[in-house]
Amino acid sequence: EETGVRVELAEEDDGEKIAIKLWLRIEDIKKLKGKYKDNEAIEFSFDLERDVPEDVAQEMVESGYVCEGDHKTMAKAIKDRVSLIKRK
């Protein structure tokens, strides 16, 4: 499903790190509610043992990086990427 958002690794995952750096990349602004630039990327750290995707997305909303209306879309994108990383 195309959401307009993609999360990718910002650094090589060696399988050892607990906290990883990720990029939340805006790919299609028409599919989102907030005002973003095409190909805008937000770099953030995610602790694989402690962080919760919904909470991280909420922090982005509170910091003004993400529109409240896009919270669920961002949280799902983060959750999907993190579950792929954890499965390795």
Rank of each mutant, 00 (worst) to 15 (best):
D14W: 07
L24F: 06
E8S: 06
P53N: 01
R87C: 04
F44P: 00
K17M: 07
G15C: 08
M60F: 06
K79F: 10
V7M: 09
E62T: 11
A75W: 01
K76T: 09
E54N: 06
R50W: 02
G69D: 15
I29E: 15
F44L: 07
K21N: 09
V5R: 02
D55T: 12
I20W: 04
L32D: 04
P53I: 01
A10T: 07
Y65R: 14
G69V: 14
G4H: 03
K31L: 07
L48W: 00
R6D: 04
V5A: 06
K17I: 04
K31I: 04
R50T: 12
G34A: 02
I42L: 09
V56F: 12
C67V: 06
T3S: 15
D51G: 05
E40W: 13
I78R: 00
D70N: 03
K72V: 10
K76L: 09
L24M: 06
S45P: 09
K33N: 10
L84P: 06
I26W: 05
I29K: 15
I26L: 08
L22D: 06
L24P: 15
G34R: 00
K35E: 13
T73M: 10
Q58D: 05
L9E: 09
M74R: 01
I85Y: 11
R81D: 02
R25G: 07
A77W: 06
D38P: 15
D51N: 05
G69W: 07
P53G: 01
N39V: 05
I18Y: 08
D51P: 01
K35Y: 06
G64T: 00
M60R: 00
K79C: 05
I78W: 01
C67R: 07
R50D: 07
G15K: 10
M74K: 00
K30H: 10
K33T: 08
A57K: 00
G15Q: 10
V61A: 02
L84K: 14
K30N: 12
E11F: 04
V82P: 03
D51V: 01
E27R: 10
I85C: 06
V7S: 01
N39F: 05
E11Y: 00
I78P: 00
R6E: 02
Y36C: 06
I78S: 00
V61G: 01
G69N: 11
A41H: 11
E59I: 10
G69S: 14
K86H: 08
A77G: 02
E16Y: 08
S63F: 08
E54I: 00
A41C: 15
S63Q: 13
E68N: 05
K79E: 12
T73L: 11
G34E: 00
K17G: 12
V56W: 05
D14P: 08
E1V: 05
Q58L: 10
A57Y: 03
Y36R: 04
V52Y: 08
F46V: 01
A41V: 15
T73G: 05
L22K: 11
D70R: 01
E68G: 09
H71A: 14
V61S: 01
L84V: 11
K33S: 09
E12F: 07
F46K: 02
I26N: 13
K30E: 13
D28T: 02
V82M: 04
K37D: 09
V7Y: 08
V61D: 02
S63E: 09
I18D: 14
L9Q: 03
S83G: 11
I29G: 15
R25V: 14
I29H: 15
I26Q: 13
E11H: 07
K37W: 00
A10H: 08
V56P: 00
G4A: 07
L24S: 11
M74L: 12
K76S: 09
D14Q: 06
I20R: 10
I20H: 07
I85V: 07
A41T: 15
E59C: 11
F46A: 02
F46W: 01
I78K: 05
G4N: 07
I26S: 12
R25I: 15
K37L: 05
K17T: 09
V66H: 01
T73P: 04
A41W: 08
F44K: 04
Q58R: 13
G34I: 02
C67Y: 15
V66E: 03
S45I: 14
F44W: 05
M60G: 01
K21V: 03
E16Q: 13
N39C: 09
M74Q: 02
I18Q: 14
D14V: 10
K72A: 15
L48H: 02
Y65G: 02
D55M: 13
R6V: 04
K37R: 12
V82Q: 01
I85G: 00
A10Y: 08
I78L: 03
R81Q: 11
G15M: 07
K30P: 07
D14A: 10
F46P: 01
A77Q: 04
W23K: 15
K30S: 14
G4P: 05
A41E: 11
A19K: 15
L32R: 08
K30T: 14
V7D: 00
Q58I: 02
E8H: 02
L24T: 09
C67K: 06
L22E: 08
I78Q: 04
T73F: 08
K72F: 09
A77T: 04
V82E: 03
W23S: 15
E8G: 05
K37H: 12
D51Q: 03
D14L: 08
N39G: 14
G64V: 00
K79A: 14
L48E: 02
Y36L: 04
F44I: 10
F44T: 04
V56L: 06
V82W: 03
E59V: 11
K31W: 05
R81C: 13
W23P: 11
S83I: 05
T73Y: 09
E27V: 15
V7G: 00
T73I: 13
E68M: 08
K21Q: 06
R50P: 05
K35D: 14
K21T: 03
E12A: 11
D13W: 15
D55W: 03
E49M: 09
R25H: 11
D51M: 03
K31P: 08
S83D: 15
I20P: 08
D55Q: 13
T73Q: 13
D70Q: 07
E11R: 02
K33A: 07
L32P: 08
V66N: 03
S83N: 14
D38K: 15
E54V: 03
A77M: 13
I85D: 04
E49T: 11
L22N: 06
D80V: 00
K21D: 03
E62A: 11
E43F: 07
R81N: 04
L22F: 10
A57S: 04
L48D: 03
R50G: 05
L24R: 10
V52S: 15
Y65H: 11
R87I: 04
K35W: 04
D28F: 01
K86A: 04
C67E: 11
K86I: 00
D70S: 02
D14N: 10
E40T: 15
Y65K: 15
R87D: 06
V66L: 13
V66S: 00
L24W: 03
E8V: 06
I20D: 06
N39W: 05
R87T: 06
D70Y: 05
D13G: 08
Q58H: 09
A10W: 03
V52A: 12
A41F: 13
E62Y: 07
E27W: 07
R87A: 08
C67M: 10
R81V: 04
R6G: 03
K30V: 03
